[in-house]
Computed example of a mutant assay.
Amino acid sequence: MTRYGQPAPMPDSIRQYMRGGKDPARAFPCPRCGVAAHRPCRIPSRGVPLAQVHEQRVNHRAQTVACCPTCQVPPTVPCHADGRALKDGAVHPARHTEAKGEAA
């Protein structure tokens, strides 16, 4: 392989670990500002990139990859309280813990 050729293929399962220091939520598109996966979140009105990811993006990742031990729902199903989905796509803190366990 030449020095400037295409890099060797890498499975998506380990690609995130090779992105040292990046939030795992960046592997998903941001529902708040609409940026693509693996791009930094931006302030929608000005387009300025942010150092952190939006909370909605973190919640989206947790909802996509982890079951919620609090309300007993499988991945991709929104968390609920008393039969109603949590406001603005929020998830229970226990689901965030489960999602971090998936990454480790």
Rank of each mutant, 00 (worst) to 15 (best):
A36G: 12
C68G: 02
H96K: 09
A62D: 06
M10G: 02
H38T: 02
R57N: 07
Q52N: 06
R57L: 07
H96E: 13
P24A: 12
N59E: 11
M10K: 07
R46L: 14
P7A: 15
E55Q: 12
P75M: 14
D23C: 10
E98C: 05
H92P: 01
P29Y: 08
V48F: 01
A85F: 05
C41W: 00
P75F: 13
Q72E: 06
S13H: 12
A8W: 05
T64N: 09
A94C: 04
R15D: 01
P75R: 13
P78K: 12
M18P: 00
C79D: 15
P24F: 09
T70Y: 00
G21E: 13
R3K: 08
A81E: 09
Q56R: 04
A90W: 04
M10H: 03
M1P: 06
A27Y: 01
D88C: 06
G20T: 07
N59T: 04
P78T: 12
F28I: 03
P78L: 12
R3Y: 06
K100L: 08
K87C: 07
A25F: 07
P9R: 15
R15L: 12
P9K: 12
Q6F: 04
P69L: 03
V65Y: 02
V48P: 00
C68L: 04
A25E: 06
T70N: 02
T76P: 01
D12E: 15
P31K: 09
R3D: 15
E98A: 13
G47K: 05
D82E: 15
G89R: 03
Q52S: 10
Q52G: 01
C71P: 00
R39I: 03
